[in-house]
């Protein structure tokens, strides 16, 4: 079931086309992501979908209903976490959550109970009474996410959820996102971190200069860049002496011996593994592992967009941020 659909969505700012006729949809229960460099139009699209920017052309639908001209009813079903905090500095964490709940018409008892539950889930109980201005950047982002879901929206928009956040908090936030997804929240996130997109999103769209250049599940996108079928074997002995014999036996395959006791087999089409395993076994080379080698999403992204990953955050963002490396959990 499609929660959000955008058709031909276009945005111009005084003649400059920031978003150029994009089409996409978000299915219920999935994490859908926009991956693209700074200035690609990600935030502008979120703003159009959520009512913070006017739609120049095209249309948007929520649960099949067009809301291009009247966003207010649709907003009740949306949770929005902007790239920069928009909570109240002078209110405490808990007060901010309760206030946000009230904006969606939640009764006092309900919003307070839900705020307390979220503070616990997001490990912010200790900081709950402190004013928001005293929070660290990472805590602010976590609270902003909690504020985004207090009214249990149909869809949660996360604009660059880990940008500008230090590694430890970024990891926590990614875990929270996965957790929310497991509990059934539909999530639309934008990022310029390739690894983050690969790790979190089920479906992705690459967006460059206001256009979606490719869209699909992570697997589908990977397949595009797959030049060859590659299987890498980890063997219990030295393969180097057997190369000639191997070529004679499997003429269609290319081989590439690794540094250690590994060897990669390349073939133009998928191939059966058993004969290969038998070949090694017969020559007293036990096979410990056979692994299909896929291209990384990074390769795919570079191939399709022609943008090098290090150019992704050129225009803004602290230099010290190196993306989500080291945040693998």
């Amino acid at each position: 079931m499609k929660i959000i659909e955008a058709e031909n969505l276009t945005k111009t700012f005084n003649g400059f086309t920031a978003v150029n006729g994009v089409n996409f949809h978000i299915n219920r229960g999935e994490i859908f992501g926009f991956l693209g460099p700074n200035g690609a139009g990600k935030t502008t699209i979120i703003n159009m979908l959520t009512g913070l920017a006017k739609i120049t052309a095209g249309q948007v639908k929520l649960l099949g209903e067009d809301y291009t001209r009247s966003v207010k009813k649709a907003q009740a079903l949306m949770g929005i976490v902007p790239d920069e905090s928009n909570l109240y500095e002078e209110l405490s964490g808990r007060e901010n959550l309760c206030f946000c709940g009230a904006l969606y018409g939640m009764e006092k008892g309900l919003r307070e109970a839900r705020a307390d539950r979220l503070l616990e889930q997001f490990e912010l109980v200790e900081a709950a009474g402190r004013p928001f201005r005293a929070y660290s950047k990472g805590m602010k982002r976590k609270l902003a996410i909690a504020a985004g879901i207090i009214h249990q929206p149909e869809i949660l928009f996360l604009d660059e959820p880990t940008t500008g956040i230090d590694v430890g908090f970024a990891r926590q936030i990614r875990k929270l996102i996965v957790d929310l997804h497991r509990r059934g929240t539909t999530i639309f996130l934008t990022t310029h971190y390739i690894e983050e997109a690969e790790r979190l999103c089920e479906r992705l769209a690459f967006i460059v200069r206001g256009k979606i250049v490719r869209e699909g599940t992570v697997d589908e996108l990977m397949k595009e860049a797959q030049r060859d079928n590659i299987v890498r074997f980890t063997l219990g002995g030295d393969f180097s002496g057997l190369a000639g014999e191997f070529k004679a036996r499997f003429p269609g395959y290319a081989i590439q011996a690794g540094q250690d006791s590994g060897v990669s087999i390349h073939a133009p089409a998928p191939f059966p593994l058993l004969p290969l395993v038998q070949f090694f076994e017969e020559r007293s080379l036990p096979v410990y592992e056979a692994k299909i080698v896929r291209p990384s999403l990074e390769e795919v992204f570079v191939k399709i967009t022609g943008i090098e990953p290090q150019k992704m955050q050129n225009q803004q963002g602290p230099k010290s941020m190196k993306g989500p490396q080291g945040a693998r959990s």
Binding site: T50, G51, L52, K72, K73, A74, Q75, A76, M78, I80, P82, E84, S85, N86, L87, Y88, E89, C100, L103, Y104, G105
Partner: peptide, 11 residues
């Protein structure tokens, strides 16, 4: 301070 955006996003 952008908190007004929060209000504009409310239904």
């Amino acid at each position: 301070s952008r908190s007004f955006d929060r209000l504009l996003l409310a239904p």
